[in-house]
């Protein structure tokens, strides 16, 4: 498959501070990749280099083969981007802003008019098309940011924390919109919010201190880091400390922890052993509400990797 984004040994220094440390990444066409990392990991720096907002200290980045520094305009013609929390000119209306940006992307006439209507409808701002942006809320501006990113129907979407600063409802709305538009597009989505990444992306690149720690599909990463099965047991009454120790002594139980009414068990046995474990817990007199295995989450992988680099 063709590579949409290629990042080769990118380094970026800010006044001597190393923000990106030999970062390399290849993103195939139609892949939806999340760039995950704590604050200050280098996510925004990577995105800004790809969008031609800053230059790398060394290394190269390409979008569909075009160098983002040497062939900036060609590279950006394939991209729709949302970077941080963008602002718009308060004196213009959404229609005017989209018309302005559309023309900068080589659109005109009926094609541009139709694209503006479609983009505004998609982000539910059609009714606000002729209202000055100065009157808009943060959420409305973020929706407009999505509209401008999609306006020219770009094959690549580069998004940096697109739900930043939004209320929970706004976050859900943005996520739903992005889930809708990711079809037939390459999405490169930087965030430190794991739930956003897991809902929009199939693959994840985890970075910290400017270095790539892992890059794989979310499923593969889980498998790689999954050594013990986790079982979550919900009981009518929470177990006492003594009862918890008893559970801990059962066969194949590696670790046990109480979280409210629930008990989290790290278990080394197979499916049959897990069925036996459930019986043993019942036999100890506990009334079970639920008994379910929970796989390792992306959060577990993320925390493990990030902790290792601290």
């Amino acid at each position: 498959m063709r590579e949409a984004i290629v990042i080769e040994e990118l380094c970026k220094y800010y006044n001597g501070f190393l923000a990106l440390d030999n970062l390399s990444l290849k993103i195939a066409e139609d892949d939806d990749v999340g760039l995950l990392g704590p604050n200050g990991a280098g996510k925004t720096t990577t995105i800004k280099i790809l969008c031609g907002l800053i230059s790398p200290s060394s290394g190269r980045a390409y979008i569909y083969g075009a160098d983002v520094v040497e062939e900036r305009e060609k590279a950006l013609s394939h991209v729709g981007a949302i970077i941080e929390t963008p602002e718009f000119y308060p004196y213009l209306t959404p229609e005017e802003v989209l018309s302005y940006l559309g023309r900068l992307r080589g659109m005109s006439g009926r094609t541009l008019e139709d694209a503006i209507t479609e983009a505004l409808e998609r982000v539910k701002l059609r009714g606000w098309a002729k209202v000055k942006i100065g009157k808009f809320s943060r959420g409305m501006k973020q929706r407009l940011a999505i509209a401008q990113a999609l306006l020219h129907n770009p094959p690549i979407l580069i998004l940096d924390e697109p739900a930043l600063g939004l209320d929970p409802r706004g976050m859900v709305e943005v996520r739903e919109m992005l889930k809708e538009v990711r079809e037939r597009r390459t999405v490169f989505y930087a965030s430190h919010i794991l739930s956003e990444i897991t809902q929009v992306c199939d693959k994840v690149a985890i970075i910290n201190r400017g270095r790539l720690l892992a890059y794989d599909s979310i499923d593969n990463l889980r498998k790689k880091f999954e050594s013990k099965l986790k079982i979550e047991v919900e009981m009518i009454r929470p177990p006492s400390a003594r009862q918890l120790r008893q559970i801990g002594r059962l066969d194949d139980v590696a670790r046990v922890e109480r979280v409210g009414n629930k008990v989290l068990i790290e278990f080394e046995g197979d499916r049959e052993a897990s069925a036996k474990l459930m019986e043993e817990i019942r036999r100890m007199g506990h009334q079970l509400v639920s008994f379910r295995t929970v796989g390792i989450t992306l959060e577990d992988v993320y925390l493990k990797l990030v902790e290792e680099t601290i």
């Binding site: 031609g52 970077i83 929390t85 718009f88």
Partner: peptide
């Protein structure tokens, strides 16, 4: 300063 450049500059224009 006003971050409007985040919308204007990532466009295929010199």
């Amino acid at each position: 300063e006003g971050k409007t450049g985040y919308v204007l500059f990532p466009n295929p224009v010199r």
